[in-house]
Design a protein around this nucleic acid. Structure first.
Lengths: 212, 212
DNA sequence: TCATAATTGTGAAGATTATAACAAACTTTC
DNA sequence: GAAAGTTTGTTATAATCTTCACAATTATGA
């Protein structure tokens, strides 16, 4: 048997969509689903779904479909979501507040264990059970808790500096919510979110009549 | 000459990144750039950039590079960003407020002409020069102004209903900021933003040590 | 002016991703 | 329990996307 090919990253992105959808089905007490139905819910072809799932090992039953709960566990195991991941959140503007208020962190696999802002008026305020701390406490906090992921929801101009600081104190993954690109040490990981880009893309599709 | 191939959507997504980067260069009064330098700023290979740009017609000069301003215009023309596009923003929670507060809408090519919320306490408040209106005024507003794009930053559960309402009153493009997938009429366009997905993807990459 | 260096644009090759096609496995129905 | 209907998993094929290789063009500097 020839070696199994590594999963494409684009398939991983879809796994995330499948899981999100499956979690809703689970909440709705739906026990099983076929690749066909899942395809209708996610706008992804059934074959594509089965192919993606084949990368993470077979889980379905011919003539039946997939057990929702099982499939969720399977995806989570594959993706390394075997436990709740602790993250710190830097920046308590509207985006930061919105993220801190998000009610499904646990379900999605994360926990915000520290929230930081440099604005004294925000410090000590409690949102969703998390007390906002002064940014000066950040380094100490990281030393104590060894956090490997940080969400940065601060002004673009301050981001690179903050990334450097966090990297120095052991943070390996950065989720940057700004329309910028930063430099990180070679062993670090970054993901970006530019909230406006999808709107530009949408506009293009409307203009060119590309329904996808 | 055989027919020029249509630009891949993935190239369009990169055009958006190039433009974002170029706008910053322009602000910094940098007049020219090579595909190589742009590649370093965006983490995209120089060849890939040149290939992408080739889809929109040649714009560079061999031995020199690209005129920043020219290239921006070229990309904008290609993408149909020939004028500021008017959008309405539904939902004035943290995300909505954050979007309304964004200072670069004009530069990015959009203008928020109407902001709506159903919460009376928020109605009539003015953010960044835009007065928040009661959602009940939405239909009338749409009739008057003929808006084709809406940003929906409301709870997931209310989104489908709101999409239906908007579609009925002529909105063709929907930018949905929620971890859900909605149904739209056949002639409509949707883009989604799930703010948590990139974090899950980041976590996967850290676990599997995929630096990209 | 001419040689050298820099850079673009693109056809062709290579790599990756999606789709089609179908055997195998399971369920349902009679 | 046999036949008909579903649905999966996978190999082969097609489509798409990226990279390579290099001619062509412009800039630079002796």
């Amino acid at each position: 048997m020839r070696e199994k090919k590594r999963i494409p990253l684009i398939s991983v992105e879809r796994l995330i969509i499948y899981r999100r959808c499956l979690l809703k089905l689970k909440q709705a007490a739906i026990a099983k689903i076929s690749s066909n139905s899942l395809g209708k819910l996610t706008n992804i072809t059934a074959v594509n779904i089965r192919k993606d799932l084949s990368y993470i090992g077979e889980t379905g039953k011919p003539g039946f479909g997939y057990q929702v709960k099982e499939l969720i566990v399977h995806i989570e195991k594959f993706m390394g979501m075997d436990h709740i991941h602790k993250v710190v959140l830097i920046g308590m503007g509207n985006i930061g507040a919105s993220l801190l208020n998000y009610q499904n962190w646990q379900i999605r696999g994360f926990e915000i264990v520290g929230a930081f802002d440099k604005d004294k008026r925000k410090v000590n305020r409690v949102i969703n059970g998390v007390k906002i701390q002064n940014c000066r406490r950040l380094q100490n906090f990281l030393k104590k808790h060894s956090i490997s992921i940080a969400i940065l929801a601060i002004p673009a101009g301050e981001t690179q500096k903050k990334v450097n600081e966090l990297a120095e104190f052991g943070v390996k993954g950065f989720y940057i919510i700004s329309p910028i690109i930063v430099n990180v040490p070679k062993d670090c990981f970054v993901e970006y979110l530019d909230m406006i880009s999808p709107l530009e893309f949408l506009m293009f599709r409307i203009k060119k009549n590309i329904l996808k």
